Computed example of a mutant assay.
Amino acid sequence: MQTDPAKDVEGRSGASPGVPADAPSTAEHLEVVPRRSAWRFLPPLIVILIALQILESIVFNPRFEWALVGSYLFSPVILSGLAMTLGLTVLCMVTGVVLGVVLAVMLRSNLWIVSGFAKIYIWFFRGTPILVQLIFWYNLAALFPDLSVGIPFGPRFFGIDTNVLVTPFVAAFLGLSLNEGAYMAEIVRAGISSVDSGQEEAARSIGMTHLRAMLRIVLPQAMPFIIPPTGNETIGMLKMTSLVSVIALSDLLYSAQAIYSRNFQVIPLLLVCCCWYLFMTSVLTVIQGRIERHYSRGRHGGGPVGGGH
């Protein structure tokens, strides 16, 4: 018995007689409609009820003394502490970023003494608490009564009293910026590692030095990977400045403490600090988002990475 080859092919392909092989199946045109549960409104309702309960317990609780909070919100003492907090945050972050870039480049050095120094630096400052570092720098005079510059085991050129040099502001700056440099070094190192090594090799092949290739080729491409964690570090630094109150530096928290140590209005003054910290972190979050969108354009075909507007 002979079989028709055409029918045999149709049977193997699964196509029905008289239906083109490339015709779309009925299943492709079916719209999938999820089943609507009768309990779908329950989770949002629970969340709304909890939120309203929390809102009522905070806003309408007379013990919070919101009127007193508003009266201290723009107090000259509070605004002075706010300025100190902002200035310290900017100064320490700029120093920490620069130091982090230098350390990240040192980590990639072929000289073991250079990379080893960077590794020891990062190990020490990431391994000790920031509060301990701040207190250490504040009490540096206990170890070194005077600081001098000279030749090791030789003559000294000049010296200065440590208590005069290391003020509370200097101690806060050293503690926060040196600690931040260690964390930024790891962030920058991870960003550099995300760039294909062939980029640097191509730059070296056209005569660029290692430093120039790093600044002109590698770092701009690593920025989309460096910016997000750097923004988080900036927000963290803003809140971390509250630790300098332990060394009597008049930041936002210390200014509030100075007021409530006289009038005993602890909760309202702490709420003033919370309001200002929430406002500043919200502004920094918006700025971080805009910067991230700017540097992510190159990865989505919207323009070169690091290009101008």
Rank of each mutant, 00 (worst) to 15 (best):
M1F: 10
M1D: 13
T3A: 13
D8N: 12
V9K: 14
E10C: 14
R12I: 13
S13Q: 15
G14L: 02
V19Q: 11
P20S: 10
A23F: 15
P24C: 07
P24S: 08
S25C: 08
T26R: 11
T26G: 11
A27L: 08
E28S: 15
P34E: 06
P34N: 04
R35I: 02
R35E: 11
R35W: 03
S37P: 13
A38K: 13
L42D: 13
P44S: 10
L45H: 10
I46T: 12
A51H: 09
L55P: 01
S57R: 05
S57Q: 05
F60D: 10
F60M: 05
N61I: 01
P62C: 05
W66F: 13
L68Y: 15
V69P: 00
G81R: 02
L82T: 07
T85I: 05
L86I: 12
G87R: 15
T89F: 00
V90C: 07
L91N: 03
C92E: 01
G96P: 03
A104I: 02
R108Y: 09
S109N: 06
N110Q: 10
S115V: 03
Y121T: 00
Y121W: 03
G127N: 00
Q133I: 01
I135A: 08
F136R: 07
F136Q: 09
Y138D: 01
N139V: 00
A141N: 04
P145D: 13
D146Q: 13
D146T: 13
I151T: 12
G154N: 09
F157N: 06
G159K: 11
I160L: 14
V164T: 14
T167I: 07
F169M: 04
F169Q: 02
F169S: 02
V170L: 07
F173W: 11
L174N: 08
L174G: 06
L176N: 01
L178T: 06
N179F: 02
G181D: 00
A182L: 01
M184P: 05
A190L: 04
S193C: 04
S194W: 03
V195A: 03
V195H: 02
V195L: 04
D196T: 08
D196H: 09
D196A: 10
G198Y: 08
E201V: 00
A202V: 03
A202G: 04
A203Q: 03
I206A: 11
G207P: 06
G207S: 09
T209G: 12
L211F: 15
L215I: 14
V218L: 04
L219Y: 10
L219M: 14
L219G: 12
I227R: 01
G231L: 07
N232Q: 10
N232Y: 03
E233S: 08
E233I: 01
E233P: 02
G236Y: 09
M240C: 10
M240W: 06
T241A: 02
S242C: 08
V244N: 01
S245D: 08
S250Q: 14
D251L: 00
L252P: 00
S255W: 02
Q257V: 05
Q257T: 03
I259K: 11
Y260T: 00
S261L: 10
R262I: 09
N263M: 05
N263A: 05
I267G: 02
L269C: 06
L271I: 01
C275I: 15
W276I: 03
F279C: 11
F279W: 13
M280G: 03
M280H: 09
M280N: 10
T281C: 05
S282Q: 11
V283I: 11
L284Y: 08
Q288C: 10
Y295C: 07
S296E: 14
G298F: 02
G301Q: 11
